[in-house]
Design a protein around this nucleic acid. Sequence first.
DNA 1: GCACGCAAAATTGTTAACAATATTATTGTC
DNA 2: GACAATAATATTGTTAACAATTTTGCGTGC
Lengths: 243, 243
Amino acid sequence: MAKAEDSGAYKGSGKLRPEEMIYQEMLDAILDRRLEPGMKLVEEDLAKTFGVSRARIRATFLQLAHDKLINLVPNRGAFIAEPTINEAIEVFSARRMIEDGVARKVATSMTPERADQIRNHLAREHAAHHDGDHRAAIILSGEFHLLLARLTGNLVIEEFLERLILRSSLIIAMYESPQPVDCSHSEHDRLLDALLGGDPDVAAAEMSRHLDAIRDRLQLQRPKPGKTDFASIFGRTPRSEAS
Amino acid sequence: MAKAEDSGAYKGSGKLRPEEMIYQEMLDAILDRRLEPGMKLVEEDLAKTFGVSRARIRATFLQLAHDKLINLVPNRGAFIAEPTINEAIEVFSARRMIEDGVARKVATSMTPERADQIRNHLAREHAAHHDGDHRAAIILSGEFHLLLARLTGNLVIEEFLERLILRSSLIIAMYESPQPVDCSHSEHDRLLDALLGGDPDVAAAEMSRHLDAIRDRLQLQRPKPGKTDFASIFGRTPRSEAS
DNA sequence: GCACGCAAAATTGTTAACAATATTATTGTC
DNA sequence: GACAATAATATTGTTAACAATTTTGCGTGC
């Protein structure tokens, strides 16, 4: 499916290191759910697919495992992560803890230029929604939060939040409700209003509400979705078929 | 100096995976400044020292680089990180942003058992100070913050803060003032009082003050210490010696 | 004496082969 | 026909050798 092709065109000047390219490709596949949670990742298959050595794939695995996007099991291999309900709750709780602080800082250091930057981004979000581009909308929604993190001017926070947002994307892809009631763009509008207000407490409260809302829109009651769990799909216990 | 020896005694049951052992040993060496900032880490030397293959060392490097404790330069190798003054400031700023939230959460979820856990830890900190064990004091001081993170019950926060505290330890080791006025144990006492008070705002304010105090005790005015920067050590510009 | 360039050494990056482990298929037994 | 033991296969873990790159040392010319 997602072979490496010849490529070299869409990545600009072609100076990009192949290792980052592979990481990015796998990332995209995970967030697109072309690679489903629980799926086994065989080193040699991937190596052949990308036309690199196993060692390179192994290094990429380490990176993905560090971001909690795959699980590395000794002697067994790599598997797409299957964030549990509890993990999902903890991730959004952690984000609230951090992004409250982000909102506070951004609210108290607002400038006209920064406000324009945010408005600019929101316009793109609205456009994606208008065009019905669900995938772009999800990505832009994440990048909105990343933009706020960047406005704090703190690279440490920015980098950590970037990873946490990626992890959130996997969680959302895994637990989102069948009919995506994705009204988060209007929540982002409200967030901008709060940030422009300049009151750190109000901004933090609005951020908390927003992140809780995202979490609450998820279908976090199912015991464990994903993978090829036919038993849950067909609502019966497995039995052997007649040969 | 820090050879692997035969070892096997101090790591308990001996079931510990060697990869984690190597990471831990290198970590200790970095925080002890047996490995100085800027120092080159040659793969083969380390491989022979620890009696493992270069591949294993390479994997360990990736982990350390992810924690920002070493720098990985393509085709050049690995170097002990030299956090800049700006990085130091950002790390403590990030910690304040996060640990304010931690303090808030701990203050509002305090129980007698948890209070005892904290008091228990403080007793160990005091003991280390009393014994003049500087190294133990620094480690325990970091673990105090980690304990609070653990009390939030959020593994995401705990793991991130663990890395940030390690990074802080490197920064402190690099920038601490010659005469270590390490009065942070009394600040931890005050922090406990604030947490017991139950007021989240008070607890957060006390945490902010404490982290700012640590930062302010650092000698963050020097342009760039570490390495073999003879020019700054001898206060003169380099010149060639007569052969 | 100093700068430049070239060659040698050291070091990292990569590949391929081998060993250890886990998974799957097969066979035999009840 | 179901279950257990065993062999065959597939996959991961590890090692060693080779290629590419950088660093170092040396010599030459100015």
